[in-house]
Amino acid sequence: MTHFDSIGRDRRSRGSNPAPDSYYGHPIVKEPVWELGIPIYFFFGGLAGASAALALGARLTGNARLARNATFAGMVGVVASPPLLIRDLGKPARFAAMLRVIKVTSPMNVGTWLLNATGGGLSVAAGCELLGILPRLRDLATTGSGLFGLPFATYTAALVADTAIPAWHEARRELPFVFIGGAASAAGGAAAIITPPSDAGAARRFAIAGALVELAAGFVMEHRLGLLGEPYSQGRAGRLTRLSRVTAGAGAAVMALAGRRRIGATAAGSLLLAGALLERLAVFEAGRQSARDPRYVVDAQRRRVAAGTSRGASTFAGLPDERETLPAAS
């Protein structure tokens, strides 16, 4: 086909639509307006939630030192989270606006309540630990935050999956596992850094298991998604994905081989924390990349139409002899 259109103009120039499957290559869905603080919050939220759960496990098995240290590690996540969210919203009062309703259809709203429950419980438990008072209240708070911590460490995956961003929405099965894996490796890693190895066995195992879940879920996700897995492996997101996998993998290996020594645990924990953070950044960036390219929206939806599973937004009713070349929606 020639490069010139019917009025003799270069088809490759901007004046004519270069890609017939899109409108001048413009994105169809909007790229997130969220800035870097949001994926960093995903990391800290995961750290807080999984640390709260680890603290509960330690408390139930009578490992007081690990329970206390995991509570403190969780507090780091709890303290870091609101400023990151408020920074994105603009002012503190806007955070409070999310607490005017309980809205089940909004994972963000649900997550805000989970943050409050987990953060509140962890704060009470940490306060009791620091002051050495009210052990029963401390245990109650640890129990509450440990239970709420499980969904709190996971909900951010539901939050991004519940969007029109193709690489996020279509990854709704695996993303929660990627996120809990990262959360566990971060929480286990952090606790292993600040806890003497003689008390940190569970933290090390938690960290290694988490890293393995994170890596496995990431691989499964990328391969199941096919075309929509591309954003996870290409460009900036691809570099972040590879870096996070190398870091998390190395962290798990060092933890397994040298985690019983303080220096080994410190190195491994740091690598695992970095790997978990990088993974959230990679997922975030992959979503942005998939939003930017209309191909990811159009191709996936076209395939639905071709497979006859379209829900029929576009009802073609053109000329009968053209109908066979254009998919008719039911």
Partner: peptide
């Protein structure tokens, strides 16, 4: 996934 996270905590304390 949240249930799996809980299971991971439980398994970690088995050792």
């Amino acid at each position: 996934a949240a249930g799996t996270l809980g299971a991971l905590v439980g398994l970690s304390f088995l050792g």
